[in-house]
């Protein structure tokens, strides 16, 4: 991490960083305060499973069925899919990012304020995991990117560009999919949830299982995402959306600003009637 760690501070940077940090902290708190999950989930604790089952019956069973077996619509569609075998990782991702429970029927569940506390999420995950084998919540070892080496970072970038950018964009700003669906922005998504998304393939996202992209490589991908999103920019970046935003700025700010100067330049200024005294 030479690139980030060797940044020396500009004299003014201290204040700016303080201000920026406060704002960032506030924003992060607002968005992810409940997101600090305890990874040491005791998934096979019977009390926990029972607690999860009770929460499930109240909050999830109306769509996913009393035993999480899923509910089909009359037309044969999927009202709520079966959750048997989806594993704790899927529950932790869906509930922990607030996607589940869904607020309303939509082409795609969206990230929002989680409804359940961490404890409750763990309990739900434990209950679903008890129904059938599935991917578990990842070890902290693979979601902690603070000790990543430069080589791993580069490798993570290669994996990211090969597997992820086509949908999520090169800085994780997100992208459009057919029929109103979309690949969401990866900005501010926790390391654990990034890992779980790759592992379980939520909604339209494909699965990138540990057999094909190893946990170490997943960690490198996460490190690259965090790096590319937190590195300094060369000015306001327009959300990383690329040339469309650049073109908008060129016209609105560029041509707009220069035309404003041109109007001033060509304006026939104030006149007076009296002659020089």
């Amino acid at each position: 991490m030479r690139f980030l760690s060797t940044h020396r501070r500009h004299p003014l940077a201290g204040y700016a960083v303080l201000l920026f940090g406060l704002l960032l902290a506030a924003a992060l708190y607002a968005a992810f305060a409940p997101g600090k999950a305890d990874a040491d989930t005791a998934t096979n604790d019977p009390a926990k499973i029972e607690e999860g089952r009770e929460l499930f019956l109240v909050g999830c069973a109306s769509c996913h069925g009393m035993n999480a077996e899923g509910i089909m619509t009359v037309a044969g569609g999927n009202y709520g899919p079966s959750l048997v075998g989806v594993g704790a990782a899927a529950v932790d991702f869906q509930v922990g990012t607030g996607r589940m429970p869904m607020a309303q029927s939509a082409p795609q569940a969206i990230r929002k304020e989680p409804v359940y506390t961490d404890e409750e999420t763990d309990a739900l995950a434990a209950y679903i995991a008890s129904l059938g084998p599935g991917p578990a919540v990842p070890d902290e070892e693979y979601t902690d990117v603070s000790e990543i080496s430069q080589e791993e970072l580069t490798r993570g970038g290669e994996f990211f560009r090969t597997n992820c950018t086509a949908c999520h964009n090169s800085v994780g700003a997100g992208g459009a999919l057919p029929s109103g669906r979309f690949a969401p922005s990866l900005q501010g998504v926790s390391e654990k949830h990034l890992y779980e998304a790759m592992l379980t393939g939520p909604q339209q996202m494909p699965v990138f299982s540990d057999d094909v992209i190893s946990p170490e490589d997943k960690r490198a991908i996460i490190a690259y995402i965090k790096n590319v999103q937190n590195q300094p920019q060369a000015g306001f970046g327009g959300g990383g959306l690329g040339p469309v935003v650049d073109g908008m700025f060129a016209w609105i700010i560029g041509i707009g600003g220069l035309v404003a100067v041109a109007v001033w330049l060509a304006a026939h200024g104030a006149r007076v009637k009296k002659k020089r005294s």
């Binding site: 090969t162 060369a234 990383g240 040339p243 469309v244 650049d246 700025f249 016209w251």
Partner: peptide, 28 residues
């Protein structure tokens, strides 16, 4: 140029015919 970033080539990575990014657009 001082305040608005344009075409951050480092974020796109080197060209590789098997890679692409969402939002691939030409200049306006």
């Amino acid at each position: 140029a001082a305040t608005l970033q344009i075409n951050p080539i480092w974020a796109y990575g080197p060209y590789n015919p098997s890679e692409v990014t969402a939002g691939s657009q030409p200049d306006w």
